[in-house]
């Protein structure tokens, strides 16, 4: 045993954080019981009638639920995968740009949309993809038929995924660029002596050096696997694309908050958390097994 007194001071330093976690993360967990109740605001959590798994039964009866889960997974996974590939490629390529001014300008420009709210961006994209918008004007200029992209079940998902990647890749790219800057220049010099050209250096030095960061970023991103992006979809969807665009969060919002169905909303939320938990644990194990990477 080490010096206990020494450890106590650390524990005291930890205490405020733990209290906050208890108040804001653990205590609200009590609310989960609403999922097993017919919750009535007037009776409160402790007075409402218990209904067991009835809410989940009703939930499974909704024909939309399967669709909603599939949409969530497809959109979230696509965002996750592209959200790794695009910034890595961009960072590696940008790193090859010689002109420092150009490099910095590029970096700032792609970083910019990250700071804009989806409410604003959704408006922008609605305009761009509208029947008489920019995209359709291009399409008709080349002799095509105008399409209403945002209410088309063919285009809605790709638009959601691509616009999200566009908005966020600048931020991840900055992190990758920072990692690249930290690579020991001696490695590149050694490579050059061994006759490596720029392509070889990129493949054999830059990318392997990025591996750790990529795994870290992906594992962190996995925590959000079922968060397919409420802000974005809520501001861009409409009833016609519920089929391909309705995700768990928007569904919970429509069913739960808008119509005061707290029990149903909690049931869906709990369901989502359980699925997320399983996914996170298994992907964490996978990351450990295949990349030897652990956060904890």
């Amino acid at each position: 045993m080490r010096n206990r007194k020494d450890q106590i001071s650390y524990h005291i330093m930890l205490l405020p954080g733990m209290v906050l976690v208890a108040i804001f993360s653990l205590l609200p967990m009590v609310g989960i019981v609403m999922a097993f109740q017919k919750y009535m605001p007037a009776k409160g959590i402790f007075g409402s009638e218990w209904v067991g798994l009835k809410n989940f039964e009703i939930l499974m009866k909704y024909p939309d639920v399967r669709n909603v889960i599939i949409n969530t997974l497809v959109i979230a996974i696509a965002k996750l995968v592209l959200g790794i590939i695009v910034p890595v490629v961009f960072a590696v390529l940008l790193n090859e740009v010689r002109n420092a001014g150009l490099k910095r300008t590029m970096q700032t420009i792609v970083y910019l949309p990250y700071f804009l709210s989806w409410v604003i961006l959704a408006m922008m994209f609605q305009n761009m993809f509208s029947y008489t918008g920019m995209i359709n004007q291009l399409v008709t200029a080349f002799g095509g038929e105008p399409v209403m992209y945002l209410i088309s079940n063919t285009y809605f998902r790709p638009i959601i995924i691509l616009t999200d990647v566009w908005k966020n890749f600048g931020y991840s790219a900055v992190i990758y660029l920072a990692t690249i800057t930290g690579i020991d220049p001696q490695l590149y010099e050694a490579g050059e002596i061994d006759g490596a050209n720029r392509w070889d250096k990129m493949i054999h030095i830059t990318l392997p050096a990025l591996k750790g960061t990529i795994v870290l970023m992906s594992t962190l991103a996995l925590g959000n696997i079922l968060n397919a992006g409420f802000d974005q979809i809520f501001n861009m969807y409409s009833p016609l694309v519920y089929e391909t665009g309705d995700i768990i969060d928007t569904y919970v919002y429509r069913m739960g908050l808008e119509k005061l169905q707290y029990s149903m909303g909690t049931a869906v939320g709990l369901f989502k958390s359980v699925v997320s938990f399983v996914l996170i644990v298994s992907s964490y194990k996978l990351a450990d097994k295949f990349a030897g990477y652990r956060i904890f």
């Binding site: 408006m123 609605q126 509208s130 029947y131 008489t132 209403m148 945002l150 209410i151 409409s238 009833p239 016609l240």
Partner: peptide, 9 residues
């Protein structure tokens, strides 16, 4: 209006 369904804002 062909784009009535998109006028959600």
């Amino acid at each position: 209006d062909p784009q009535f369904a998109t006028r959600s804002a």
